[in-house]
Simulated assay, not measured.
Amino acid sequence: MSDIAETAPAEIKSEVGVMAEYFEAVADPSTLDTSKMTERVEAFTTAGRKVSTYYSTNCM
């Protein structure tokens, strides 16, 4: 798990981990498994929504 995911609030820790892994993978395209891109994008989108909701509810 990335450093950012380790320090994320418990309510969104796994979602931040999903997002961090996605960013790490696209930063180094040689690590991408293109057969799973649709699945990864969907997971990233779902995680992003939850993190955005958490932020707007708890941090604004």
Score class of each variant (00 low, 15 high):
Met1Pro: 06
Met1Lys: 04
Met1Ser: 13
Ser2Ile: 03
Ser2Leu: 03
Asp3Ser: 12
Asp3Gly: 10
Asp3Val: 06
Asp3Cys: 03
Ala5Thr: 07
Ala5Arg: 08
Ala5Trp: 06
Ala5Asn: 04
Glu6Gln: 14
Glu6Asp: 09
Glu6Leu: 07
Glu6Arg: 14
Thr7Tyr: 08
Thr7Glu: 11
Thr7Val: 10
Thr7His: 09
Ala8Asn: 06
Pro9Arg: 13
Ala10Asp: 15
Ala10Val: 11
Glu11Arg: 13
Glu11His: 04
Glu11Ala: 15
Glu11Lys: 13
Glu11Val: 07
Glu11Phe: 02
Ile12Ser: 09
Ile12Met: 13
Lys13His: 12
Lys13Val: 04
Lys13Phe: 10
Ser14Pro: 01
Ser14Cys: 00
Ser14Ala: 11
Glu15Thr: 01
Glu15Met: 09
Val16Arg: 05
Gly17Trp: 00
Val18Phe: 00
Val18Gln: 04
Val18Ala: 05
Met19His: 02
Met19Thr: 02
Met19Trp: 01
Ala20Pro: 01
Glu21Tyr: 01
Glu21Val: 00
Glu21Leu: 09
Glu21Arg: 10
Tyr22His: 07
Tyr22Ala: 04
Tyr22Ser: 00
Tyr22Lys: 01
Phe23Ser: 01
Phe23Arg: 00
Phe23Val: 02
Glu24Phe: 01
Glu24Arg: 05
Glu24His: 04
Glu24Asn: 04
Ala25Gln: 08
Ala25Lys: 11
Ala25Cys: 02
Ala25Ile: 00
Ala25Ser: 10
Ala25Asn: 06
Val26Tyr: 06
Val26Cys: 00
Ala27Asp: 06
Ala27Leu: 08
Ala27Ile: 00
Asp28Ile: 13
Pro29Cys: 03
Pro29Ala: 07
Pro29Trp: 01
Ser30His: 07
Ser30Asn: 11
Thr31Leu: 15
Leu32Pro: 01
Leu32Phe: 03
Leu32Arg: 12
Asp33Cys: 07
Thr34Val: 13
Ser35Gln: 11
Lys36Glu: 14
Lys36Ser: 14
Lys36Gln: 15
Lys36His: 04
Lys36Gly: 09
Lys36Asp: 10
Met37Thr: 13
Met37Cys: 04
Met37Ser: 09
Met37Glu: 08
Met37Trp: 07
Thr38Ala: 12
Glu39Thr: 14
Glu39Asn: 09
Glu39Pro: 02
Glu39Cys: 03
Glu39Arg: 11
Glu39Asp: 14
Arg40Ser: 12
Arg40Gln: 14
Arg40Glu: 14
Val41Ser: 07
Val41Ala: 11
Glu42Cys: 07
Glu42Gln: 15
Glu42Asp: 15
Ala43Tyr: 09
Ala43Gln: 14
Phe44His: 10
Phe44Gly: 05
Phe44Leu: 14
Phe44Trp: 12
Thr46Met: 11
Thr46Asp: 15
Ala47Gly: 08
Ala47Lys: 10
Ala47Glu: 13
Gly48Ala: 12
Gly48Arg: 09
Gly48Asp: 10
Arg49Ala: 12
Arg49Gly: 12
Arg49Tyr: 08
Lys50Val: 09
Lys50Asn: 14
Val51Ile: 14
Val51Tyr: 06
Ser52Glu: 13
Ser52Val: 01
Ser52Thr: 11
Thr53His: 07
Thr53Leu: 13
Thr53Asn: 12
Thr53Ser: 13
Tyr54Thr: 02
Tyr54Lys: 03
Tyr54Arg: 01
Tyr55Gly: 00
Ser56Asp: 05
Ser56Val: 03
Ser56Thr: 10
Ser56Pro: 00
Thr57Cys: 00
Thr57His: 04
Asn58Gln: 05
Asn58Trp: 01
Asn58Ala: 01
Asn58Val: 03
Cys59Ala: 02
Met60Gly: 00
Met60Asn: 03
